[in-house]
Design a protein around this nucleic acid. Sequence first.
DNA 1: ATGAGAATTCAAAGCGCTTTGGGCAAAAAT
DNA 2: ATTTTTGCCCAAAGCGCTTTGAATTCTCAT
Lengths: 349, 349
Amino acid sequence: MNLKELAALLDLSQTTVSRALNGYPEVSKTTRMRVLQMARKYNYQPNARASSLATGRAMTIGHIIPVHSSNDVGNPIFGEFITGASQTYSANGYELLLSIADHLNEADTYRNIAARGTVDGVIVHSPRRDDPRVQLLQELDIPFVIHGRVPDTTLEYSWIDTNNRRAFRQATKLLIDLGHRQIALINGLETLTFAWLRRQGFEEAMRDAGLTVNPECLSSDELTETHGYHSASSMLAQGNHPTAFLVSSYVVALGVRRAIAHAGLRLGEDISVIIHDDELSFFQNNDPEPQFTATRSSVRQAGVQAAQMLLDIIDDHDRTPRTKLLEAQLTIGVSTGPVRTSGQLTTQR
Amino acid sequence: MNLKELAALLDLSQTTVSRALNGYPEVSKTTRMRVLQMARKYNYQPNARASSLATGRAMTIGHIIPVHSSNDVGNPIFGEFITGASQTYSANGYELLLSIADHLNEADTYRNIAARGTVDGVIVHSPRRDDPRVQLLQELDIPFVIHGRVPDTTLEYSWIDTNNRRAFRQATKLLIDLGHRQIALINGLETLTFAWLRRQGFEEAMRDAGLTVNPECLSSDELTETHGYHSASSMLAQGNHPTAFLVSSYVVALGVRRAIAHAGLRLGEDISVIIHDDELSFFQNNDPEPQFTATRSSVRQAGVQAAQMLLDIIDDHDRTPRTKLLEAQLTIGVSTGPVRTSGQLTTQR
DNA sequence: ATGAGAATTCAAAGCGCTTTGGGCAAAAAT
DNA sequence: ATTTTTGCCCAAAGCGCTTTGAATTCTCAT
């Protein structure tokens, strides 16, 4: 069923039918009713490609997920973020085009998308500290919102981000207040902004407390369970091992937990751990007594808001950048406790 | 830059330019070269919507992920599967449209997609035992491939699936051979086919060995860490608790591992665990000595193949169903060992 | 009754591409 | 030398929609 057929059926012109369906005022109440009724009866849906061609709007948003190698980890955060964004899109009649593009020919991907006109805007994932995509997208004149930030640029752009620096500063301070002095940071890849900012926050808090960061207590890699395990294992094997870990994600913390158990230590008693919790739906950390003390920030909610921001930008034809900083919530779980000096007896918690 | 402009620039008709670019034979070698060169120079890309309208092919595949409630878990498996599928699409010039649709108005989603003509085919995720989508999609005459199977239908359809039944039969048999008699199954939602088949395989192996399944050793829920933790915890609290667990995913097994540790037992010594490992990229279980004994099957690879199958179906205009059963690989890790009778001494592993 | 203005409706152009059906040389066959 | 074939190219139609500009009918004050 297309517009022509529907119009013929109603004995009306395509113009009138189109206007009736799209809510234009130049159509009488009675005919509008007739049209809507008939359209529902035959489940008429305008052909997306045709209307898109006519209006010049694709009604589609692109999410381009960078992959750094053929066996790169598919970060579970993307799925959660996109689940959120998707809600906003379907509520506004938009579709989501997902493209998993090799980091190396990222530029080509964006150029093609722009030239082919498949999307009205894009969400940029996993920004790096000096990410060339800001400039590229501005040159291509395609609306975009970055999930994260690009600190090393002077350009203005729209972004939504969690206050990673503050979150990790707070978390570090909490550990210091608990008496910890040897604190390790098991971080994501520090070429990525989020991890870099977390490192900043960590170092700031340490500096504020007059503590020095032991380079052996820093580790940075992709957010995998094995990263957590191997990093924590080797740190715990040191003579004067850390008594607390700051861990960049739940997944990584699972590896840290494994390493702690493997070393015969007890989480929350011998060793404290604070994680950043993106509130992944399959890793709930919100029991009355959460497994992990965490700086918590819903990445799904970030997706909802990022999408809304992008749609607003597109609708308003307004290119003045918008920004939104989300604060993480520090919640106490059972993975943290006061520092235990080596000789000290274990007491019941 | 559009076709008209490019043609004008070359002083050729749009017809010839289009043919030159699309590799039709009715164009001389020299002009083809001129066209290609100019196209590259101006980074000409045909407008996707326009060519799609003209050809009637969207060059887009839809992935519709069902959500059962607003706080449904975003299964990490989807992300991994889609990462695989995406490789196939981009290698063939296709795009991926992702739609996260409420299970309740799933039918509408498919109907709309069909009427709006946004995709050339769809991949169906998370099939249930008697999934109405098979009939629906056949009525709508839209090509599709199911990731999984629909056992309770007489209709013919294309699918790709892991041999879940066999995998779990084998895994169960392994545990029985190790001497385990009380074996628990911590499964996914058994309304979903994959979990139901795993249950079948488990029960078959138990029956073959003349063992009865203790209903208290069966648990079925969404594939979350907490599901694993709570199920295993309550089972281990029983007087005659199971000595081995079959667990439907790595994520769930992390909860089981936590429960085992919490109960003061040792994984691989006091308690054996076999998982099904989808080879999620952020949960590598392929060390020389894997953490978990597992039935292993790459869901990313399944995505690659499902996508290829769908594209073949679309290209061939051939609607005879195709099917592919992938065998899981049983690999031994450190999470399994011979059963230990209660009084037995722990020996070095 | 009548002309102005508002309310409806329509025909046709256009979005940017592919593809049909010729057309017009040059080459080959008669 | 004439016809047929081949090679190369083009004009125009059409995909299904939106939107412009004009036409028609209806209202209502004059």
